[in-house]
Every structure is written in structure tokens, then in C-alpha cells.
Write a protein that binds this DNA or RNA. Structure first.
Lengths: 210, 210, 210, 210
DNA sequence: AATGAATGAGTGTTCATTCAT
DNA sequence: AATGAATGAACACTCATTCAT
């Protein structure tokens, strides 16, 4: 089987896993993924070493999608800190909205996905994350904002952390949504993307003008 | 059984759960908690409706411990934004270090703990979180920084989100630690508390002076 | 649960396992054993650590049954070697016939049962086998044949080995039985118990008179 | 494909299976055998009908190797029973040592290999074993010991049975070996080949002089 | 003939929870 | 109130075998 074909098949499985995950917000069983992808259970293991590897791959894939939007974006930011912060925060929220499974998946990474993952796989995963972060930081520091590499890394790491944390703070299961209108839960009644955008903008302004 | 007695027994179970969780970084089994607390397995269910409720209660308890330090702290902050940001960020990191199980537990909340939790319990849990946030915000806005209630809530919510996200980004399983010294993982080789402190200070300065 | 109760329940499970094994000549599934014993699958694990442990226990139990007949028998053997060999060989074949699952199970010990068994359990198992052998050897050397302990051990170990090997050589699946009448398979067309008895008698005579 | 070619390829597969089995003492997977033989997995099934057939063939092959040494040996035995027994027992142990996979494989025959084997194949296998036994018996009875055909068959069948049983009684997994020095396991702490040689000699003497 | 991608049956084990005592 | 024996649902993974190419 050629590498291309493998990539196609893997992507199909990932797509099946993505859809199931988006619906249930839980890790679907391998049987469910296989069925959704129209292959036999055993075939899943031709492409992924374990169930966890599937979702780690999905997480990476989604993260890469995010970066694919972010990297050109940060590279083209203006030299004006406030305008740059504004532009980035909007672009960022928009990019996040396009990979809806990213944050729920990332929120499971530490507690669920990394269990049962061989050290080597986990290392490789984390290294690719780090490289992605580096790449984005490189693009950011190559722009007109005059950030050094380390400053760019710090800013992006904190941006991502804030995002992930906000998602967890503001994500409410469907059944709780109606109650968000009533005090005291109304403090959490925010549109996630607006909140991300706002808080990221503030953080960037603070960093760039501080 | 009197309410006081119930409270004592619940606290003993929580303490057992806390210790086991701190050691293993995984949700201990109900059997393990019962044994550690010196009671029979079935007795756990006289105090908690499910395994998840134990850890939700533990999370709340730990969160309350954090607030117990934060609330007086924010109330006494100086009017000078930079000094206030500096003081808070240090106090905050210190307070976090005193409840080491808080962040690992909070990181599991969305993906693990909230499964299997009846809506009513979950609602109550979230409401108490919201109330705690409100209380801290009240203390913060009552201080000399001149923040409105909503501004205080926003700032604290973002602070907590940033913290939780950073913890997840920087937490590495023991086996991966050695590799943190080598590129590209070295971008993650930070002391969590220093990083929290720094990033929170920047966020506060940005917010207060923005 | 008292030790007595545990013993009773374990024995019921063993009995269920024994019956299923005798019928199918294959290791039944845990589910099948549980069902046959009238308990839930999980309950099996209250008494046995793994599937293999069930059958190791069954093997031990059957072996103990054999020894329970053999030990008094060897103790009372006459001083006359030929008569003793004759008496023992008959008693032995009779005793074997009373634990029909013993040899099929023993034949699986090396290749199947000992897989997946923790070293400690396996050690304990082998030690009890050794002790049983020692006990029988003690009874034999205490009799009138004038055998030393080591001679008795050797003789019994060889007797058992010959038995186990003969069983494997002469055991034929049901579907092959009809073909045993036809050359060249007719060399295997022997009654196992007669063959055991004969060959053991010869071995004993050779040893005792050699 | 000519019969010769088929024979060569089969032998290569058997050799691969033999080596893998000798190393792991477990039945290697078909994939492993194919890889070790340098062919594709599916190709194995051009030569063998099932995995079990491979090992049945290997067992036959190894058994034939044993016979190839034994048959000339028994033919040339002296007329003196004790000397003959001595000579045979040494030759036999030596021959066994040259086919180290034979006994582990034979020990699996009843419980593992014969599952999943079509009756016809099994019949053919058993018939060839019987023929081999007959051939050896013929050689033995043609010698100077004056044994009848049936006596020779009996003696050889019992010799083989004793050997197989002893192997199973004395074979200990690597992890248990250290414990063999300590009572009560020390009764099993024997060199297999010495034990086989001794016990076979005794059996032969008993049979030939009885 | 040779391949190797695809299959899918088969099962031991855990553990939160219940409930009779 | 307290126990702990009993439950049984849930599921990843392997690997012998097939068959289209």
C-alpha cells in the first residue's frame, strides 16, 4: 500500500472518528469508528496502533488546521499593537470555530488520551505540537511587531492556554444551557468565541504594549 | 446520623480520595477510597451518590481552599495596577501550590467528572463555582483598584482559565520529563508556578492599564 | 465471607469447570463456567485471579484426589517386589480412572495453563505438586519395600511421567477412534488403563528387582 | 510448481517455524513465520492448509529425525540386555538433544496442534507416526535382543511416552529455574537428558530381563 | 504463483453500583 | 448505619484466513 493510499485511508478513519466525537463528545468505541468508516474493526489497527492513537492523530490534525490559518495570519499582522491584537483575536476565534472538535479533544489530552500511549508515540506527539508552536512563533516574530522568538513563543503558548481553559470554563452540556440565563450561572453565559476574542485581544495588548 | 457526623465522614472520604489522587494522578477506584478511609465499599454510597460526585466534591473543596486565600488577597490589593498585578500573581501562584490536586482534577472535570452526573448535581456544582467566582469578584471590586463587578468577574474568569490551560500545556508525565531538556520540547520546559505567575501578572497589567 | 464458605464456592466453580472441560476437552470460557455454576461472570474473579488459575486449581485438586488414593496404597504394599508392582499398578490405574480430567488437564499444563500465570502462583503450584510427590514418596519408602526416599521419588516421578506420556500417545479424538482398528493405527489401539497398568508394573518390577 | 520446488519451499517455511519456536517456546504467528521465511503471509497457505498443519509437519519432521538416529541404533544393539539398555539409553538421549524442538512440540500436540485439524490430516499424521514406530520396532526386533514385533512396539511406545512425560514434568520456565535449588522444588532439579537416560535404561532392563 | 490488505469472530477482565443482611 | 458479596455491562485487540489483483 502506497504512502498516499495509507494517508487517504487514515484520513477517512479520522474523519469518521471526528464526526462521532463531535456528536457524542465522548471517545467513540473502535467498533463504532470502524463501522462509521465502513471498514472492519481489525482494519482500524492497520492504520493506528491503538484507540488512543486515533484521537491523538485527530487532535494533531485539528491543531494543524488551526495553525494553517494562524501562521499566515500572524505573519501579516501590522506593526500597530492594538490593531494587531484586534486582527489576531478575530482571526483566531474564526479559526477555532472551524475546528470545533479541537478544544474538546485537547481538553481530554492529559487525562484520557495520554493514558495507554507508548512513551515514544507520546514524545513524538508532543514534539510535533512543540514544532507547530515554534513555527507559529517564527511567523509571528518574522512579522512587523518586533517580537523576539521567545516572546512570540510565550505569547502563543499563553494564548492557547487561555483558550483551552476558557473552553473548559464555559463549556456546558446541553441540558444545563437553559439554566445559564439564571443567576448565578449567568456569569458563564457568554459566547465562547466572543470571550476568546476579547480575552485574547486584552492579553495581546497587555503583552505588546506592556 | 446528624449532619455534623455526615460532614465529618464525608470529609474523611474526601481526604482519602485526595491523597490517593495526588499519588496516582488518576481517579482511584471506589474500593481504594473506601479502604483508605477505613470503611466498606458500600458505605461510600451513603455519602456520595456516585464516584464522580466524590471528585466533584473534592474539586469544589479544593477550589474553595484556593478562594479562601485569594479572596482576602484581592481585597487588600493596592491601587497601583502594576503593584497589584505583581502582588496578586505571586499570591495566586502560592495559593495554587497549596492545593496541588486542584488543577489535575479541574482538568478532568469536563471530560471525565461530568459524565454520569445527574443534571441537578451538576447544576448545583456549577452554581457554587459561579458563586465562588462572584464572591472573589466582589472582594476584588471592593478593593482599591476601582474595578466594576463585571470587570472583576471577567478578570478572574480569565485568570483561572489561563491557569487551567497552562497547567494542561505544561504538565508532562514523569517519563517524558527527561526529554524536556531537548529541542523542540524545551519550549515547554518551564516551572509551572513561575509561568503562571508571569502570565497572570501580564494579563492583569494589560487589563488594569489597558 | 468465611474461609469455609469461600472453599465451598470455589469448589462449586471448580466442579462447573470440571464438567465443562470433561465434555469439551477444551478450556471453557469464563462466561461458560460462571453460567454453569449459576453465578455472574464477575463473581468468578472473587475466587480466582484469572482463568488459568481456575484450571491450575482444578489440576491440583484432581492430582490431590489421585494422591489420596495412592498414598495409603503405597504405604501398604507388600515386601514382595512382583506382588507390590502388581498391586500398585492395578490400584494406580483404578485411581486414574476416577479422575478422568486429570490427564487431559495435566497435558495442557506446560503449553496452555502456565501462560499468563504470575510467577508466584506458578511457583506455589509447582511446590504443592512437589510436596504431594514427596508425601507419596514418604509413604512408599515407609512401606516394606525398603526403598530410600530418593528411590521412591524417582520411581513415582517416572511412573507419573510414563502415565502422562502414555495418555498423550494413546488419546485419540472421537472421530479417529474408528480408524484405530486398521493398520497401521492399530498399534495405538489399546485400552489406556490396561496399558498404564502393564507398563507401570513392568517399570516397577524393573526398578525393584533391578 | 514442481513437487521438488514445493518440497523445498515447504522445508524453508518449516525451518523458519522451527527457529522461531525454538526461541520463543510458543507457536509463532503465521505472519512471523512468513516474514522469517521471506515470503508473504498468504503464500504460507499455498503450502500448508492451516497454521496447525505447519507445526504438525514440523513435529513429524523432528520425529523423523529422531527415528533416523534411533533406527540404525536399535538395529545394532548387542544381545546382552544390560549392555543394550545402556547403549540405547545413551544414544537415545543424545538423539533427543539434537532435536530440541521435538518434545515441546509433542507436548502441545494433543491440546493445541490437533485442534482445528481436519480429520483426514490428523489421520494421516497419526498413521505416519504409527509407521515410524513400526519401522523402529522392526529394526529393534530384527536385532539380537530377540524381541517380537509386539514387544518391540510396546517397549518403544513406552519409551517415548516416558520421555514425553518426563519432559513435561521437568520443564520449567526460565523464571522458575532459580527456585529449583530450594526444597521442595529440588526434587525436580534434574538434568533432563540424564534423567531420560537413566529412566529409559531402567525400563529397558526391566523389560528385557523381566 | 504470489501478494498483503481486509476481515471479524472471539473473550478475559474491571469496577461502579446494589441490596440483602 | 454499615457491610461486602454479587452483579454484568462494556470493549480493545489479535491473528488465522481469504481472495482480488
Amino acid at each position: 500500500m502506497s504512502d498516499d493510499e495509507r494517508a487517504v485511508r487514515s484520513a477517512q478513519l479520522l474523519q469518521a472518528a471526528r464526526q462521532l466525537f463531535q456528536v457524542s463528545q465522548e471517545l467513540p468505541s473502535v467498533a463504532a469508528i470502524a463501522q462509521a468508516a465502513g471498514v472492519a474493526k481489525g482494519s482500524v489497527y492497520l492504520f493506528f496502533g491503538s484507540k488512543e492513537e486515533i484521537f491523538i492523530a485527530l487532535l494533531e490534525d485539528s491543531f494543524a488546521s488551526l495553525l494553517a490559518v494562524i501562521i499566515p495570519g500572524v505573519h501579516g499582522l501590522t506593526a500597530d499593537p492594538r490593531a494587531a491584537a484586534e486582527d489576531f483575536s478575530l482571526l483566531y476565534a474564526y479559526a477555532l470555530a472551524n475546528v470545533p472538535e479541537l478544544l474538546p479533544l485537547a481538553a481530554m489530552a492529559n487525562s484520557v488520551l495520554e493514558k495507554n500511549l507508548p512513551v515514544a508515540k507520546m514524545l513524538a506527539f508532543k514534539e510535533r505540537l512543540a514544532s507547530g508552536l515554534e513555527a507559529a512563533a517564527a511567523a509571528l516574530s518574522a512579522g512587523q511587531l518586533g517580537l523576539h522568538r521567545m516572546q512570540a513563543i510565550d505569547l502563543l503558548l499563553r494564548t492557547w492556554s487561555l483558550t483551552l481553559g476558557l473552553w473548559q470554563a464555559l463549556d456546558f452540556p446541553q441540558e444545563l444551557r437553559p439554566h445559564l440565563k439564571v443567576s448565578p450561572l449567568d456569569v458563564f453565559d457568554r459566547d465562547f468565541f466572543v470571550e476568546v476574542s476579547d480575552s485574547v485581544r486584552v492579553m495581546w495588548i497587555g503583552t505588546l504594549t506592556g
